[in-house]
Design a protein around this nucleic acid. Sequence first.
DNA 1: TCTATTTTTGACCAGCTGGTTAAATCAATT
DNA 2: AATTGATTTAACCAGCTGGTCAAAAATAGA
Lengths: 219, 219
Amino acid sequence: MDNIKKDNTEQKILEAAHAVFIKKGMDGARMQEIADEAGINKSLLHYYFRSKQKLFEAIFRKIFASAFPNISRLMLSHRPIEIKIGMFIDQYIDLLTNNPYLPNFILKEINRDPQSLAKAISQPELNSHEVLSSINKQGINPREIFQMFENEMKAGNIKKMNPADLMANILGLSIFPFAAKPLLTIMFFNGDKKAYNNFLKDRKKTVKEFVLNSIMINK
Amino acid sequence: MDNIKKDNTEQKILEAAHAVFIKKGMDGARMQEIADEAGINKSLLHYYFRSKQKLFEAIFRKIFASAFPNISRLMLSHRPIEIKIGMFIDQYIDLLTNNPYLPNFILKEINRDPQSLAKAISQPELNSHEVLSSINKQGINPREIFQMFENEMKAGNIKKMNPADLMANILGLSIFPFAAKPLLTIMFFNGDKKAYNNFLKDRKKTVKEFVLNSIMINK
DNA sequence: TCTATTTTTGACCAGCTGGTTAAATCAATT
DNA sequence: AATTGATTTAACCAGCTGGTCAAAAATAGA
């Protein structure tokens, strides 16, 4: 069998499906559109992936995994807490800047079908060779990160608070401007896209300042 | 003409459409489902509202308006800034607690069709009698609020920062836990819904502390 | 070259969706 | 009771969607 050709087609399908699904979501995407994007016959989609659902699940796991880069490795490393939080915000906003459709896709799909989410977490990324380097293969384990936060609090390095709140705050501050892009562009910047982009450009700095101002203990 | 009957049917349609659209969104909603929910024939939907699009727009404006309670009146009132921000966070999280599907609906639709958003802002809520009391009829004007923030900064009451950042931070911190409910329930609380609800219960307090800790100037 | 297997295609289908239409029902006026 | 106009219904339709299938094309092995 011609593995090269097979892999090529499968790869083309995956890339096309990724592009279409992330733009339109599961409901909005059309199999014909994916086929066109891949430059192949629609039936081939069903030949390689039995149904739209199966194809979507394959893509969803990838996209979902890419939305959570190796947080754990960074967060559990031995650096000062303010450095770790700062680096995380930097990396996360960089990720969102390069993949601005990510938040919208994730939010839409986890609300449309929360089951997929559980599945994606329990069966993370089984693909053989082309695993994105940024994926945390063990899945994300927030409890370890929460524990680390609590240790820093006990050590008196940051103010005491619910670690889930701290994590949610960091994520919310990072993600919101991307998820609500059209809203902010129109309401805050009167439709001026350049003004919105300038706002985004400074966002890494301002989020870091905002978070650290809030949680660092004045010495 | 029998205005009572007409109003009744129209009202039933609006309520049914509201319920279905907020659950499924424009793409996922079915005219038949709305008709069933209202207990009427599907053709009646087209009799009262010409098309699905028209019906959706009528509902969208209402839902969108309800998502922005009279921020301006509160924010421009003569109270200390920390009180105003605290009250706003209280009110907003209360609103989201009572309408947990709001963030998901708004985020989904403003990204699906940003045009509607512009329309909803420029043509806010023209309905005659049953205008929600919480709606700011003039629409929201963030620039006035930004100006107020800047005045407080100049007066040395809060730290200097981009007012758009401050507003985005307050909104993001408030909205994110609701928009990402399934994600947080599974990843943070291991699927334990009670733990998620407890988290939400304290959220007003923790968001207020987080924001004020960050922006208040130590005296 | 001939055969067997895999890959690709085009034609097709059942089911659902938003929407239309003509007829039936209802309510008010005369 | 008859007329008129608004409201409601049932039946229907065109178009699209995911999916199937048999045949064709490509490939690999003998």
